[in-house]
């Protein structure tokens, strides 16, 4: 393949990665924005979503689309519920103290991960995509006969991957409408701005925190259900999304939702493009190091306000 079609393929793959990433990172960003805590167990909620998707599709059987559609609803709900309960049981009792929350969520991380290892087992298990046609893509090239449309071999995308991009955009839109147009969204934003004043106005801040924590985890689980037909479910799969989501939230500016979206696309795309052209490990080394350097030299992120 020539450079042009190759780059287009890399960009498409990058968009798919970015679509999953934006959902996971949004979950982390909302939790940080409203509750001011760093949820290290976020990657495990992602993993739990993928594992539940496998269980649901296994139990329902029949056409893969039935299981997938059911998983799309059930997995985020269950994961959100688990997160809300762990918030009530653990985080609420340590008063959301930043350091202790990190330690507590590291604990939750190991509990979820190891419980999955004991029940789901160490194997990677696939979930079948509901539909998976291969769509060839055209490429335009100038030659002696003017502009020509060619169909380079290997330049294609599956219909499922297109669906992932579309689904992520829909969820983002729905989330935006939810936060800006509904009463619950208003309450969440009020809590984010000033939890003390919100409490004085009768907002049940404790309940809002649990809901936000659940919502954040549910978004991660939703991303995982979408990714599991592309990447298999495995009990250690949470580590990469966690690191990537962290990166995105930091680059976007802690707590800034538009920043998160922009950063997710930047990082997802560059990850897709770099890993097509370079060795994946080298790409990861460069990406991780660059993000650390951005944090060092521009700690407020791209869209965040500078701390005084």
């Amino acid at each position: 393949m020539d450079f042009g079609p190759h780059l287009m393929l890399a960009t498409l793959e990058g968009t798919v990665i970015a679509s999953i990433l934006v959902l996971t990172a949004m979950g982390l960003s909302i939790v940080f924005g409203v509750m001011r805590v760093v949820n290290v167990a976020h990657g495990e909620f992602f993993m739990l979503g993928a594992v539940l998707a496998w269980y649901v599709s296994k139990m329902l059987g029949g056409h893969p689309a039935i299981g997938f559609a059911a998983a799309l609803v059930i997995a985020p709900l269950v994961v959100g519920l688990i997160a809300a309960v762990s918030d009530q049981l653990i985080l609420k009792r340590i008063n959301y103290d930043p350091d202790r929350t990190i330690v507590g969520t590291i604990g939750i991380l190991f509990i979820i991960q190891q419980t999955t290892l004991m029940t789901f087992g160490p194997e990677a298990r696939p979930v079948e995509a509901p539909f998976n046609q291969r769509l060839a893509l055209p490429w335009f090239e100038f030659s002696e006969g003017g502009l020509q449309m060619i169909w380079p071999w290997g330049l294609s995308i599956t219909s499922y991957k297109l669906f992932v991009i579309f689904a992520a955009l829909t969820v983002l839109l729905a989330l935006w409408l939810f936060l800006t147009r509904t009463k619950i969204g208003l309450i969440m934003r009020a809590t984010q701005q000033d939890s003390e004043t919100a409490k004085a106005f009768g907002v049940p801040v404790g309940t809002v925190y649990s809901c936000v924590f659940g919502l954040g985890a549910a978004l991660a689980a939703l991303g995982a259900v979408l990714v599991v037909p592309i990447q298999q479910a495995h009990y250690l799969m949470g580590a990469d999304p966690l690191l990537m989501a962290f990166t995105v939230v930091i680059i976007g500016g802690l707590g800034s939702l538009p920043g998160t979206v922009i950063a997710a696309f930047l990082i997802g795309m560059s990850d897709g493009i770099i890993s097509v052209f370079f060795s994946p490990t080298l790409a990861q080394i460069i990406a991780t190091f660059l993000v650390a350097m951005i944090l060092v030299f521009r700690p407020q992120g791209l869209m965040g306000k500078a701390e005084t």
């Binding site: 653990i90 009792r93 340590i94 202790r100 507590g104 604990g107 991380l109 509990i111």
Partner: peptide, 9 residues
């Protein structure tokens, strides 16, 4: 994991 949660709590 359990130790971490119990300790911090």
């Amino acid at each position: 994991g359990l130790a971490l949660v119990i300790l911090t709590m």
